[in-house]
């Protein structure tokens, strides 16, 4: 009996612990429960799917905890020697139906929001800005159509569709800027592509998620979304600087 009471206390502690974790997560700034503030249509769509998955996972986990707490609490009442019989087909059906329904919800939401989560306009679509991105263990190089290059950050005009053609000069990397959308793996010898549209100005941080050796922690990404006019001015200047350095060298 005392053991059962102890277990009840422990399971209450577990529930309180879960509640504290969720409450603490909700209050912290930035919240460790939500994906970084979406700044592109794709990131918005992924965030929507994320919350559905979060709800489904939390709901099922709550059922498990409730079931365990109920099982341990109920046992106090049982006093007979007889064994409970096997589960009825109806209970079994319920045990199968609840998880299946839960994962079907996840699948439906994924398929419903998939095209939005990809937000990948056809290559060469009007107004598409194409940038070549080369990944190296030591950092990133961005090459624009007019020959301008940059390695500190990727500058793009806010609202434009940006298509990246990503290659790696050494090992496998990935391109991941959470606020702008999902990651893309960059295998050496292949050209990966990614597309995004920043829907507000700002600097968005990201990084590679594929371990790449001793400089992995420094392989960070910064994408700066600028108003079109500022972007144009920067691009012209960068191309001129590039041209100047070329003729000088």
């Amino acid at each position: 009996m005392a053991a059962v009471v102890r277990t009840l206390i422990l399971s209450t502690l577990a529930a309180v612990g879960l509640a504290l974790v969720l409450a603490g997560g909700a209050l912290a700034e930035p919240s460790p429960l939500e994906l970084s503030a979406p700044a592109s249509p794709a990131a918005h769509a992924i965030s929507d799917i994320y919350w559905v998955v979060f709800g489904v996972a939390l709901g099922l986990f709550a059922l498990v905890l409730l079931g365990l707490a109920g099982a341990l609490a109920r046992s106090r009442r049982a006093g007979t020697d007889s064994e409970p019989g096997p589960l009825t087909p109806r209970t079994l059906g319920l045990f199968a139906a609840i998880p299946v329904a839960a994962v079907v919800v996840v699948a439906v939401v994924v398929f419903a929001r998939l095209s939005a989560a990809q937000d990948a306009p056809a290559a060469g679509a009007a107004g598409t800005l194409q940038v070549k991105v080369e990944a190296r263990q030591a950092g990133w190089t961005y090459t624009y159509a007019n020959g301008a290059t940059a390695s500190d950050r990727l500058r793009v005009p806010t609202g434009a569709v940006v298509r990246l053609l990503l290659t790696s000069a050494d090992v496998t990397h990935s391109w991941w800027v959470p606020a702008l959308g999902g990651q893309v793996r960059i295998y050496p010898g292949e050209t990966a592509s990614a597309a995004f549209r920043a829907d507000r100005d700002g600097v968005f941080e990201g990084r590679s998620t594929v371990p790449s050796g001793r400089t992995f922690d420094r392989l960070t990404i910064a994408v700066e979304a600028l108003p079109q006019a500022e972007y144009d001015a920067w691009l012209e200047q960068a191309a001129a600087a590039k041209g100047g350095s070329n003729s000088g060298g």
Binding site: A57, L60, A117, Q118, S174, P178
Partner: peptide
């Protein structure tokens, strides 16, 4: 249940790795 975040592949694009 946490594997749901990695199974739902658009979410995995954010959280894998």
């Amino acid at each position: 249940l946490a594997s749901l975040f990695l199974a739902a592949f658009p979410v995995s694009w954010q959280l894998a790795g």
